[in-house]
Write a protein that binds this DNA or RNA. Sequence first.
DNA 1: TAGATTGTTAATCGATTAACAATC
DNA 2: TAGATTGTTAATCGATTAACAATC
Lengths: 220, 220
Amino acid sequence: MIRKDGEQIVIPAAVIKRLPKYHRHLVRLLHQGVEKISSREFGKIVRVSAPQLRQDLNHFGNFGQQGYGYNVEKLYIALSKVIGIEKKSNMVLIGVGNLGQALINSTDFKRRGFHLAAVFDINPRLIGMTINGIKVRDITDLADYVQGHNVNIGVITVPENAAQKAAEELIAAGVKGIWNFAPVDLDLPKDVSVENEHLTEGLLRLSFKIKGKTKFNNKN
Amino acid sequence: MIRKDGEQIVIPAAVIKRLPKYHRHLVRLLHQGVEKISSREFGKIVRVSAPQLRQDLNHFGNFGQQGYGYNVEKLYIALSKVIGIEKKSNMVLIGVGNLGQALINSTDFKRRGFHLAAVFDINPRLIGMTINGIKVRDITDLADYVQGHNVNIGVITVPENAAQKAAEELIAAGVKGIWNFAPVDLDLPKDVSVENEHLTEGLLRLSFKIKGKTKFNNKN
DNA sequence: TAGATTGTTAATCGATTAACAATC
DNA sequence: TAGATTGTTAATCGATTAACAATC
C-alpha cells in the first residue's frame, strides 16, 4: 500500500474486527515453531479467503514476500505494533463481583500484554482484600492511582446501574479506553474508545441461529 | 415483506448481529412503560438509522403501523419469537472455574429466558459442591442429564486445551448450540451452532482503537 | 381529513472476490 | 531460471441510505 502523506487513512471496521483473530493464531503458530505461512494456508486457519487476508494486511504495510509467503515472527511483530500491544499497557478494574474476580484471575489477556495494575470497589467488605495477589482498593483512590501509574484502560464489571458513573470516573481519572462488561450502552466523549462485552447478546444470537437451523432441519 | 413460499429466506448476518441490541432496549422501554415508538426515535436509541431499522425489522414481518410507529410490547413479543426466546430454554455449563462461577451467579441471561439447569466439572473437589443453588455434577453424568432434561444449549468455560473435547461431549449428548468462552475456534458439525465470547479479542480491538485516536489527537 | 410514519424500491456506498502483473 | 505467491486493480457482491407511495 502506498501511504498518501498527510491524509488520515481510515481502516475499514470489518478489517479491525478480524485483526485480533489473526494475532491470536500468529501467537499459536509462533509457539508451534512454524516459520513461514502463505496467505492461502493462513486464510484457511482464520477462515478468511486468501485475497481478503492479503488485502487486510496491506492496509498496514507489505509484510509478505512474493514466492515465499509471510514470515510468522515478522508478521506477528508487525501486527502487534499495529494493534498497539508491542509493549505492555496498564489497566484498572472497577467492580470486584463474580465477573470482576474471574477477570482478576484470568491469565488470558495478561499473556497478550495487558497488565491489571489495580482493582477498585465501593464495598467496604471487599476493600483491603487480596485476590490473586492484587489488593482491592477504595474507589475514592481511583483518580490518584490512575494518574500515578500510567494507566490507559479501565475495565467495568459493576452492575448495570453503576456502569455509567464508573465510566465517568475512569475518564475523569484519565483513561483512554473502556472495556465494558455491563449490559448498557455507555455515553462517552468521542476521544475515549469503548469496547463492549455484552455477553447476553451473544447468547441471543446463538438462540436465533439454533432456531434457524432447527427449522431448516425440519424442512419447514 | 412478502414471503415467497418454499424458498429458504436468508437473513443477512449484519441484521442478526443487531437483533439482540434491539431486544435489550425493547425490554427496557417496556419496563419504563413506553407504549409506542417511531423508527426514528428507536433508531436514535440503538444507534442505527431509521430506514435501516425498518429494513431490519421487515425481514421478519410488518410490525409497524403507518402514521403511528411501533407498539413497544407488540414489537418486543414479535422479536422474542424471532430470536427464539419466547419460551425458556435449558442450558448446561461445563467448567466451574472462575468464569464458570461468575456465569452461574449471573442474573443477566436468566432474565432473558435462559435457564442454567446444571453444571459439570471434572475436578472431584468441585463435584458435589453447590453454587448459587446449583449442584456441581460429574462430567461423566453429562449425556444422561442432557437427554433427560430437554437441554439444547451448552456453555463452555473450561481451559483452552479442554474446550474441543467438552464441545464434542456436549454434541454427543445432543445440544444444538454452544456458547463458547474458551479462546479457541471449535471444530464442529454444520448442524450445531456456535457463538464465541473471545473476550481478549475485544481487548485487542480496544487497544487498536486507542492507538488510532491517540495518533489522531497528536495530529500525526 | 391532514399529518405522520411505515414498507419498499432504487441508488449509493462499502466490502469481498477474481484476476494477474510484479517479483522473490 | 522456473515456480510460487504476493500486492494491487478491476469486477462483483452485499449492505446501507435515500426517497416516496401507501396508508393508518
